[in-house]
Simulated assay, not measured.
Amino acid sequence: MSLPRQLLLGAAALSLAGFAQADIAIEMHAVDKSGVGKTIGKVVASQSRYGVVFTPMLKGLSPGLHGFHVHTNPSCEPAEKEGKVVPALGAGGHYDPESAGRHGFPWGDGHLGDLPALFVNDGGTADSPVLAPRLKLPDLEGRALMIHAGGDNYSDNPKPLGGGGSRVACGVVKSAPK
């Protein structure tokens, strides 16, 4: 079994078995060039002994895999870059406190904010938990959680930041347990 599949199944088992206690609920919103839109659900972040489990309860996303990341700033507001308005650009880039300077696997040595891809079923619902083994709940405080339009190849090649494309949903992490 591949490591990403093991992490996904492990996160599901932790959530279902009660080993991970829900600590932070992050309200997620659709985002576009005009700003922050309607609520699409929430993601619950829970600390486990294996890392942070992100359990989505989301609706209204396009089916398939989506890039899923912790971003540096606590904002989901649009901002201008090179003369164009970019949805949720106020969130900044992927959370990278160790200055890795590259995108990578959630268990690797890339950005600390690189999470496993988020799976959305054919009905537009995301409810499969993912595990971020290098994160701890306090890392999330004052950050944003981002969902991108496309998938994630965990590399900067052939496209930067996993090739996930535009930002389609965002939530601000208001606080984390101490």
Rank of each mutant, 00 (worst) to 15 (best):
S99T: 11
M146W: 07
R134A: 09
A91E: 12
D114A: 04
G110E: 08
K159P: 01
S128V: 15
R102W: 13
G151T: 14
L131E: 01
E77G: 10
F105Y: 04
D114M: 02
H148K: 13
L118H: 08
P133W: 01
E141R: 12
P158W: 05
E77P: 09
A132I: 07
A126K: 04
V168H: 03
A88W: 09
R167Y: 08
W107K: 03
N73I: 00
D152N: 15
P158L: 02
G165D: 08
N153S: 01
D156K: 00
W107V: 00
K136G: 03
A149R: 13
G90A: 09
C76Y: 13
P87F: 14
K59W: 03
L89G: 11
A126G: 05
A79D: 14
K136N: 12
A79Q: 14
S155C: 02
P106I: 00
A91L: 10
P106H: 00
P160I: 10
M57S: 14
L145Y: 01
I147W: 08
L145K: 04
A132S: 15
C76T: 13
A100I: 08
S155V: 01
L115H: 13
L89D: 12
D114L: 02
L137M: 12
L135E: 08
K136I: 03
P133G: 08
G60M: 01
P78E: 10
G60R: 00
L89T: 09
V70C: 02
G90T: 09
V168Y: 01
N153L: 01
G142V: 05
F68V: 05
P133T: 03
G113N: 06
T125E: 13
A144V: 02
D122K: 14
S166W: 00
D109S: 10
G142H: 07
P97Y: 09
N121D: 15
G110W: 03
L58D: 06
G163S: 07
A117F: 09
S99C: 08
C76G: 15
W107N: 07
L145A: 04
Y154A: 05
H94W: 01
L161S: 11
H148V: 05
V120D: 04
G108N: 11
K84R: 14
F68R: 07
H94P: 07
K136Y: 02
F68P: 06
D109W: 01
G83R: 13
V120L: 04
P74M: 08
P158E: 03
V120E: 02
L161Y: 03
R102T: 14
V120Y: 04
S62H: 05
P87M: 13
V86M: 15
V120I: 04
R167I: 10
H103F: 05
V120R: 06
P78T: 05
P106L: 00
L118N: 10
E98D: 15
E80Y: 05
G165V: 05
N73C: 00
V70F: 02
Y95T: 11
V168R: 03
H111S: 07
G67D: 00
G164K: 11
P116R: 01
G60Y: 00
S155G: 05
L140W: 13
G93Y: 00
R102E: 13
S166L: 03
V85E: 10
D122L: 12
K84W: 02
R143L: 06
A88L: 06
L137V: 14
P63Q: 09
F68M: 06
D152R: 01
L89M: 13
A149T: 03
D96A: 13
P129Q: 07
